[in-house]
Write a protein that binds this DNA or RNA. Structure first.
Lengths: 128, 128
DNA sequence: ACGCTAAAACTACACGTGTAGTAGTAATAC
DNA sequence: GTATTACTACTACACGTGTAGTTTTAGCGT
């Protein structure tokens, strides 16, 4: 089974764990840009929920503070999000790419890189 | 301002309005595949909410049933979804395309088509 | 004109998410 | 060793979404 759905705020919390590694609630909270920084207990609640969902875990303590680490990778979470998007738009990746192009969210180089990756995996499949 | 966020079920309802045109609640409900067909009043509630959000409107009546039509296009709704996804993954369209490729959700032809579109719009920009 | 049927309009509720307060406890500072 | 501080654990609540029941009304058939 794939890990559960992650909400926006949950993802922002995971973000800190992915980029900076295992962190305390305080560290996660302070990683938010000052302007939109949730209250300490808000972050704490979300971390607890992530723990309940099994996507983070307590690793050790520093002082009396718990340190949490991510149990799912950024890649896996991203894949999840994209799968959900695909389900919503009817499964067509083409549509998504077209929109990205129109909105200027991908460069030509991005597309060229994508084609290279595709060619690679196609080749691998043929060999097997 | 862009139209409001549309949830999964709301999108499924819009889907019917986009593909079949203006429809009654009953027609929308019956467009759901039998297995996962919500109760009539469930669909009705969602349609009312879509109306409150200003994304559908009553056009006429057939018998005593209202007929609703979409006020936002599928394209606009898709763009909205993709923008949200981009915000969640940190704004990088490249990541999204890479995932789509890895998961086999786009063909080489899709990517080639995307590059053609990109080339076109780049050219247009230069002209202006 | 009247009853039947289907739809409209309204109400209710559970779950997820974002938000944060409060009560209790443990490390720390002196 | 006691006071302060900072963190944990728990509780609460509002809003959006999915779900559907109940009550009221309007068109339709005879």
């Amino acid at each position: 089974m794939s890990h559960p759905r992650l909400s926006k705020l949950e993802l922002q919390i995971m973000e800190r764990l992915w980029t900076a590694g295992a962190s305390s609630v305080r560290e996660i909270q302070e990683a938010f840009p000052e302007r939109r920084r949730p209250a300490y207990t808000t972050v704490q609640t979300m971390v607890y929920r992530l723990e309940a969902k099994g996507v983070v875990r307590r690793t050790r303590k520093i002082g009396n503070a718990h340190v949490f680490e991510a149990l799912v990778s950024r890649g896996a979470a991203e894949r999840r999000l994209i799968d959900e998007l695909l389900a919503l738009v009817g499964g067509s990746g083409r549509t998504v790419v077209a929109h990205l192009v129109e909105a200027g969210n991908v460069t030509d180089e991005d597309l060229r890189a994508a084609r290279r990756i595709l060619q690679q995996s196609t080749k691998k499949e043929e060999r097997s």
